[in-house]
Each structure stands twice: as structure tokens, then as C-alpha cells.
């Protein structure tokens, strides 16, 4: 039964969306790219997360190395050590990368970046050029490393239907405790303890709540007052609100004592500072250019940048969409001001 709903898809529409590439090369467009070009492109578009040599930064995926480790205690799964099909790499880079700027790479750029990833895994030489012509000739080391789901055979003994109900084992000992290395987020641990304390000490709740707030306020004003004099004028409420907003930035930026460059540069002293000054941080080309032209992160400039990073500076590495509310922007700037150095 047909309902006659929808309309025929036009060839141009199918061409725009049907981009997936299969292991046999179906879907690959004509084109080529060299390891040499790939190195440049990788450095510009990929290295911020994956490292200059595809070795990975922080928790971002490592794309190279790990060959021969799959049976180890902690296997390192990379394109070279794990991925069975080269088509998967091409397809993913072309459609889903770079992170925060997807679907911007041309076919030739993609061939070049994939060639460089192969080179970083010692799978091709430095003069290699990858194209749709030689694509299927590349051999992936772990191509034969996969079997189709065999749980129904390999785990047939889990279908027991009548499991043991009594005296199923001699003795029971605790062999491992999560508390030993407890990696549970601290917020909930703290909350659990607070709850237990509250339950065992039934004091009037109104008063307790007021005291808590007072204590928090005191803590904030101490923090805010401690650094330099100029920050003494900061509104502690605003700083506190800004700390919350900064959670959105934390994935990439650090601020405060011991802050380091992460995916984004460290932000100590950023308000009022010249742009592009974090040591050893690899800024985008446009940020470097803006720095050379003397961009200073005044509160106004920073506010404009934070509202819509990509509109403010086309080509910035900052993949953040922007802070929608003016209040949030002012709060986060106040928070950043509380770290003058």
C-alpha cells in the first residue's frame, strides 16, 4: 500500500547528501592528495586535537601508533593498529571532521590528510600520493582482525534457563573495591555525605540553609579579594555566576593557578591583554594575523568574540558556538578578570 506522501528526491539533492564511501571504494570522488600537502593541512586543521604527528592531545583520539598492541592489557587502537578499511578514514574525515568545522574539506584535501595519517602510521613513504585510482591498493594492517558477532555460539552456555538458586558457591570474598581508586565525580560523593549528615542531625533546615549561603558568600569574597587590588572591585556574585558559565569553556580552556594550554590557550590575565600571547600555543592563522594587527582583548572585544566566535573571527579554531545571553558574557568576563595573572 502506498500513501503517495513525500516527493521524488532530485539528483542534485541526492548528490549533496549521499556522500558515504564503502570499503570497495563506492562513493569515492575523483581526486588526489600527497603526504606533503597532507602534513600542512593536518597541522592547520587536525593537530590541535590529534597532535602534529597524529599522536593525540589530552583525551582526543590518537590516530597513529599502537600496532601489535591489540592483545595487550591496554590496547592502543588507531587508524594504523585497528581500523580495517581505509574507506572509513576517508569517509569520516570528509564528512565529520574537522571537529567544529565539518564538511569543509575538499576531496583533494581529504585525500592529502588521509595520506598523511597513513604516513604517520608508517604505512606509506613520504613521497606517497593517495588518489581514487590507488585507493584500494593500500593494505590496512588489521583488515583481518574482525569476526562477526558470535555470542550465540561462543556464549551458548549463558542460555541456561534454570540457573542455580542454592549453595551456588563455597565462599564469597570481596576481591575489589571501587572505593580503592574511587573515580566517581566528587560532586555526588560530597552530596551523599552531606545528605547523610543532614539526616542524622535533624536541625532546623532554614537556619542551616542561611548559614550555608553565608559561608559560600564569604568564601567567594575571600577568593575575589585575595588577588590584586584591581579585582577587589569585582562583584562577587557576578564572579560566581561567571564561574558557572565558565563550565562551558572548561573543556578547552584552563584558568587559575597551574593553568596550562589545552585544546584552547590558558586564560590567566586575558582581559585587557594583547591577543595571541599564550606561550607555545598554536593559534589559528587569523588569530595570529589579528594579534599582529594589535588586537587587544578589551572587555568590549572579548564580549563580541564570546557572543559569536566564528562570526567575529572567521577561521578561528574556537569551535564554541557562542554565549547567547549578555548576562553570561559579562559574568564570564568578570570571572576571567578575577585571574589577573
Amino acid at each position: 500500500e502506498k500513501f503517495g506522501l513525500g516527493r521524488p528526491a532530485l539528483p542534485e539533492e541526492i548528490a549533496a547528501w549521499d556522500l558515504d564511501v564503502s570499503p570497495d571504494g563506492t562513493g569515492l570522488p575523483a581526486g588526489s592528495g600527497s603526504v606533503e600537502d597532507g602534513e600542512m593541512l593536518f597541522s592547520d586543521h587536525c593537530a590541535i586535537c590529534h597532535g602534529d604527528f597524529a599522536e593525540g592531545v589530552d583525551n582526543w583520539p590518537k590516530l597513529a601508533g599502537g600496532q601489535g598492541t591489540l592483545a595487550d592489557k591496554d590496547p592502543l587502537k588507531t587508524v594504523g593498529s585497528y581500523w580495517p578499511y581505509l574507506s572509513t578514514v576517508w569517509d569520516y574525515v570528509h564528512r565529520s571532521m574537522p571537529f567544529g568545522n565539518a564538511q569543509t574539506l575538499t576531496a583533494d584535501d581529504t585525500y592529502a590528510i588521509v595520506a598523511y595519517i597513513l604516513y604517520s602510521n608508517d604505512l606509506v613513504e613520504d613521497d606517497f600520493v593517495l588518489s581514487n585510482e590507488n585507493f584500494l591498493e593500500v593494505e590496512m594492517p588489521n583488515a583481518d582482525g574482525f569476526i562477526i558477532d558470535d555470542r550465540e555460539e561462543a556464549e551458548a552456555h549463558f542460555w541456561t534457563d534454570t540457573p542455580c538458586m542454592e549453595n551456588c558457591k563455597e565462599s564469597v570474598e570481596i576481591t575489589m573495591r571501587a572505593a580503592v581508586l574511587d573515580v566517581t565525580p566528587t560532586e555526588t560523593r560530597a552530596k551523599k555525605v552531606q545528605e547523610l549528615i543532614r539526616k542524622t542531625k535533624p536541625e532546623p533546615r532554614e537556619d542551616a540553609a542561611v548559614e550555608e549561603v553565608k559561608a559560600e558568600q564569604a568564601a567567594v569574597s575571600e577568593e575575589a579579594a585575595a588577588p590584586a587590588e584591581e579585582t577587589a572591585a569585582l562583584d562577587p556574585e557576578l564572579v560566581k555566576a561567571g564561574e558557572k558559565v565558565f563550565k562551558k569553556c572548561k573543556a578547552c580552556h584552563q584558568v587559575g593557578e597551574g593553568a596550562k594550554n589545552k585544546t584552547g590557550p590558558l586564560l590567566n590575565g586575558i582581559v585587557g591583554a594583547a591577543a595571541g600571547q599564550a606561550e607555545k600555543y598554536k593559534y589559528s592563522k587569523v588569530m595570529k594575523a589579528a594579534a599582529e594587527e594589535g588586537l587587544v582583548w578589551s572587555e568590549e572585544e572579548l564580549a563580541a568574540f564570546l557572543a559569536k566566535p566564528k562570526a567575529y573571527m572567521k577561521g578561528t579554531k574556537m569551535s564554541f558556538a557562542g554565549l547567547k545571553s549578555e548576562e553570561d558574557i559579562q559574568a564570564v568576563i568578570a570571572y576571567l578578570k578575577s585571574f589577573p595573572q
Binding site: 558515504d20 570499503p23 587502537k77 581500523w83 580495517p84 578499511y85 572509513t88 569517509d91
Partner: peptide
């Protein structure tokens, strides 16, 4: 998309 075989995308291989 209806296909003869699987795409073996990033989310089903790596």
C-alpha cells in the same frame, strides 16, 4: 540509504 552491503562507517569499525 538502501545498499547491497554495509558502509563500515567509523561508528561500526573503529
Amino acid at each position: 540509504e538502501v545498499l547491497e552491503g554495509p558502509v563500515e562507517s567509523r561508528e561500526e569499525t573503529s
